[in-house]
Amino acid sequence: MLLINTKFNMPDNGDIEELVWERLSLIPDPEIPVISITELGVVRAVRYCREQLRIIITPTYTGCPAMQLFMAEIKAAMHDMGFDDVVVETVYSPAWTTDWIAPEALDRLRKYGIAPPVKPAAGDDPLKEPVVPCPHCGSKNTTLRSQFGSTGCKALYVCEL
């Protein structure tokens, strides 16, 4: 798929990195398969230098059990592309935020039944619970049932309508 070993038509590093990004965008989030790991915002940088491919990722949560799987899937995909020397590095700073989720992925989350993260409007009391509209019917009459869902990144709400 990638012509990195062709002597005469060697793509430059920028092209290679772009192809890597494209391939990474096909890896789904293991817990929420409707969005990819690039849309989730965990892949921060791709660097190809002296035949070594470095992929920098930032975990969503330090305790996220899916991170191990992310790393294994990234490595497998890169080996498939023909890279032998692949390093997946974890960087914690700046910390991942839901702002990094791609805008086009938010709608897919909603259709999947997960209300996308709600941004507090300017002037909102930060300690007040945000209103989370129901992803199915749009009702704003929802109640927090549990701060924690089937995974650490999901909270459980009930639609009262």
């Binding site: 975990p59 949560y61 330090t62 305790g63 996220c64 059990p65 049932r145 549990s146 701060q147 924690f148 869902g149 089937s150 995974t151 650490g152 459980l156």
Partner: peptide
């Protein structure tokens, strides 16, 4: 159930840290 899930999720965060 919800609390069981909450405590184990918090456990995961601490172990991740």
């Amino acid at each position: 159930l919800e609390e069981d899930i909450a405590l184990t999720n918090i456990a995961l965060d601490h172990i991740g840290q």
